[in-house]
Simulated scan of single mutants.
Amino acid sequence: MVNKPDSESFLDLFNSFGRDMKVPKMDIEAVLEHHRKNLEALQKSASASATGASTILARQREALHRQLEEIADLARSYNTMPGAGEAMSKHAEFARRSFEAAVRNASEVAQIAQKSGAESLEILRARIRASMEEIREGYDRRK
């Protein structure tokens, strides 16, 4: 049995074990760079989602503001109406316009949400593709 010096550290033992077993060395910098890119992609994806959510909230706020203005205009017009028939006609018109506006706003919000989600997903897909290419390149370098 070969006597080894007692001063050899655990890391030295581990390194020599790796050399003896011919374990391939890891490029720590490449691993860190790989994960940095993953985190950047996640940040961009979250940012795209947040931008979409902000746009949706702003659009809903605008729609609510317009609806409140229409309600106020209708209320003012009731004060100046001479007959009830005309009031009912105005009320029906207001209900129709409100319904159309709600449908239009819901459609716009859905489009914004879809665009935001698609953009966020594409950022992640691009990172997955790049990650797979990095893995392929690393594997090819070892051959």
Rank of each mutant, 00 (worst) to 15 (best):
D20G: 11
S120D: 06
R76C: 03
F17M: 03
E86K: 00
G18K: 14
I56G: 00
R136Y: 08
G83K: 06
M26L: 13
M21W: 10
E108S: 06
E33T: 08
H91T: 03
E8N: 03
A58F: 04
M1P: 07
V23P: 06
L11S: 06
A50Q: 15
S9Q: 01
L68F: 14
G85L: 02
D12Q: 15
L68C: 11
L64G: 10
E100Q: 04
R97G: 02
L64R: 12
Q114R: 10
D27C: 00
A46Q: 07
A41C: 03
L124W: 02
K115P: 09
A113N: 03
H91R: 08
L57D: 13
R19T: 05
M26S: 13
G85S: 07
Q114D: 11
R136G: 05
R19E: 12
M132A: 13
R19H: 06
A46P: 00
S131H: 08
P5A: 01
D73G: 05
I28S: 08
G138K: 05
S98H: 11
H35Q: 07
S49Q: 14
N38K: 09
A95T: 03
H35N: 06
F99M: 15
G18L: 13
G138A: 06
K25W: 08
L124R: 09
Q43C: 08
A106W: 01
Y139V: 13
E108R: 05
S49D: 11
R129N: 13
A41N: 02
T80F: 00
D140T: 01
A53Q: 15
F94D: 02
R76W: 04
E40S: 07
D20M: 10
I71R: 13
G85A: 05
S54C: 04
E122D: 14
V103D: 10
Y139A: 15
I135E: 12
F94A: 06
A95L: 11
N105C: 05
I123N: 01
H65C: 14
G18A: 11
A101Q: 09
H65L: 13
E29F: 07
H91C: 00
S7M: 03
R125V: 13
L13Y: 15
R104Y: 07
L13H: 15
E40H: 09
R96S: 15
A63Y: 00
I128V: 15
A95K: 07
R61K: 14
A118W: 00
S16R: 14
E108G: 01
E70T: 06
L42I: 06
I123H: 04
A53S: 14
R127G: 06
Q67I: 14
R104V: 06
F94I: 02
A41M: 02
E133Q: 11
L121C: 10
D27E: 03
R76E: 05
H91E: 08
E134L: 04
R125C: 03
E40R: 07
E62W: 00
S131A: 08
S89M: 05
I28V: 12
R125N: 06
R142S: 14
A41E: 03
L42T: 04
A48Q: 03
A84P: 01
I135S: 12
A95G: 02
F14E: 10
R36N: 13
Q60N: 08
L42R: 07
M26G: 07
S116K: 02
R59P: 01
S131G: 11
L42Y: 07
R66Y: 09
K25D: 14
I112V: 04
